[in-house]
């Protein structure tokens, strides 16, 4: 008897928590500058809240899968995903949709960087000399730090990274990839071009020690993905409203959080090449 009432109370609590979830919550994958996420994305939340007329909250996550899980478990309804994580997330949530991408994400690219002591020279082809070196990707689930560079490396040399390099690591994120190649922990690495360019601009990179040796062809990357059931929960046309608000985000201060020039429309189909690549490499079933 007692046990049953305990369950009833617990269930009641869960239900009331669900009912109170009028707040619209979003997250963003942590891929580069993770400092003061709350401050930076808090401003984005304020903007969205003001424009959408609902309470908007941002929750910070530590990893790509954490962002995907939060999206799947409905703890966030909107997320700024990478190409691959977006595909993974949409596969888990029926009806979810990519609604906008960064202007730059239509033709995203990866830099292969190398420590200068390796003597590898920049070239138009993926340099042969990277064979036998130590190599680091970014996060295991990153599109620009893992999926696409691995795809191009396999494509060029017809071999898996394990076979090609003397050691393969995963630094965890793009900034760390740069730091590790610069300090010589790894000799070669793959990094998101936008993170590299930003850090060069900010003077954080010692270009005597590390340099870009190859640039991949372009591919689609980051995008905003929204759950399919938002119209039912936040009112008819809510999804379109979110898309418009994102596309009309013009404040440079807000855009710098991503960092993107502006947002442009996107659809699930834009990411079909990513899905194919993921399957080819075995990261997707």
């Amino acid at each position: 008897m007692k046990l049953r009432s305990l369950f009833a109370v617990a269930a009641g609590m869960l239900m009331s928590a669900a009912a109170a979830a009028e707040t619209f919550t979003f997250t963003a994958i942590p891929d580069a500058d993770e400092s003061r996420l709350n401050a930076r994305f808090g401003k984005v939340a304020d903007y969205l809240s003001e424009q959408l007329g609902v309470e908007v909250k941002y929750i910070p996550v530590k990893s790509y899968p954490a962002a995907i899980t939060a999206f799947r478990n409905d703890q966030v309804q909107l997320a700024w995903f990478g190409g691959l994580s977006g595909v993974q997330a949409r596969a888990l949530v029926d009806g979810s949709e990519a609604i906008a991408q960064g202007y730059e994400d239509q033709f995203f690219k990866t830099y292969i960087i190398a420590h200068t002591s390796t003597g590898i020279e920049a070239s138009d082809e993926l340099p042969e000399d990277i064979k036998g070196k130590t190599f680091t990707f970014g996060s295991k689930g990153s599109t620009s730090g893992r999926l696409m560079p691995e795809f191009f490396i396999r494509d060029t040399f017809n071999a898996a990274p394990d076979e090609l390099f003397s050691r393969v690591g995963f630094s965890g994120d793009h900034s760390r990839t740069i730091a590790q190649v610069q300090s010589g922990v790894y000799q070669v690495g793959a990094v998101n071009y936008s993170v590299w360019d930003t850090e060069v601009e900010e003077g954080k990179i010692d270009t005597d020690k590390v340099k870009v040796v190859w640039t991949t062809p372009t591919y689609p990357d980051y995008q905003w993905t929204i759950r399919g059931d938002v119209d039912a929960r936040y009112g008819e046309g809510f999804k379109e409203k979110v898309r418009d608000v994102l596309l009309n985000m013009k404040d440079e201060d807000l855009l710098a959080s991503f960092p993107r020039k502006s947002f442009v429309p996107a659809s699930n189909d834009d990411y079909a090449p990513i899905e194919r690549t993921g399957k080819a490499i075995g990261l997707l079933d």
């Binding site: 269930a11 928590a17 669900a18 929750i59 409905d74």
Partner: peptide, 9 residues
Amino acid sequence: EMPPVNASF
């Protein structure tokens, strides 16, 4: 604070 937990998940 505790975000909502969806029992079906």
